[in-house]
Amino acid sequence: MSVAKKFLYVNRKAPYGTIYALESLEVVLIGAAFDQNVSLAFLDDGVFQLAKGQDTKGLGVKNFSPTFRALGDYGVTKLYVEKESLAERGLTEDDLMPVTYEDENDGFAEKPSLIFVDRAELARVMRDQDVVLSF
């Protein structure tokens, strides 16, 4: 393992109807230990994974959304969110939970992890990766 690779995890599914979102997050957490250059992308129904105020009590399913807010502690600080996917679902940036990280190169200043990009920009982000894992 010489040079770190760029890993992108692409999240395309809503959080609780299928297991994809949870098992994607499990790979991200394990992968964080490998010191690679990791980012996440949320598009299609995947944007619902970041929705504010998730409450799964009635479902009997574990609410794993708080884990996204802990990603900064794992060195995962780039979460790309596709603007068109939000708009197509009647969502705005304000409907998403705040996700931040402490920038160790800037006096541990708290900075936003969510990066809102349009479809064309996200395509460029994807093209720039070494490894793309799609869930």
Binding site: K5, F7, Y20, V27, I30, V131, S134, F135
Partner: peptide
Amino acid sequence: SGLGQLIEAGIEAERLVVFGD
């Protein structure tokens, strides 16, 4: 084995080809 084996597979290969939905 563990998920680390998947990350290693991504690091060691020139391409990781994903088959899914």
